[in-house]
């Protein structure tokens, strides 16, 4: 059971109050882009064992989409941050680096 904190309304709650929305920070390719780029945007996933960034929605709360940094090998949550960013913010990166020195960084 994950416990997440919604960065908008500040509520910390069990995962049942939220709904997962998959890998975060994808570049959205649409019509007019290369076939391969479009395919990868739709289907290819990092699916890492370890540090992972993903989208969650506070569905039984304020309803907003936000981001979570989490470890898929231990279920540890490093932190959550708002949706209005296309890369993880520095303070989240710093938390992860402190806890996972071997982590290669956000790619």
């Amino acid at each position: 059971m994950l416990i997440l904190k919604c960065p908008y309304c500040g509520v910390s709650a069990e995962e049942t109050e939220f709904t997962p929305g998959g890998e975060a920070h994808l570049t959205r390719y649409t019509s007019g882009s290369e076939d391969q780029a479009f395919t990868d945007y739709l289907f290819a996933r990092k699916n890492p064992r370890g540090v992972h960034f993903e989208r969650w929605r506070h569905v039984f709360g304020c309803g907003k989409w936000f981001h979570t940094a989490r470890c898929t090998a231990t279920l540890e949550v490093f932190g959550t941050y708002t949706g209005q960013t296309s890369t993880p913010p520095d303070n989240i990166i710093a938390v992860i680096k402190a806890k996972r020195p071997e982590w290669e960084g956000f790619k």
Partner: peptide, 17 residues
């Protein structure tokens, strides 16, 4: 574990674990 093996070989899969 398919995603990890694909990562070792340098490609991504349309798979989530």
């Amino acid at each position: 574990s398919s995603g990890m093996l694909a990562d070792m070989a340098g490609f991504r899969l349309p798979v989530e674990s």
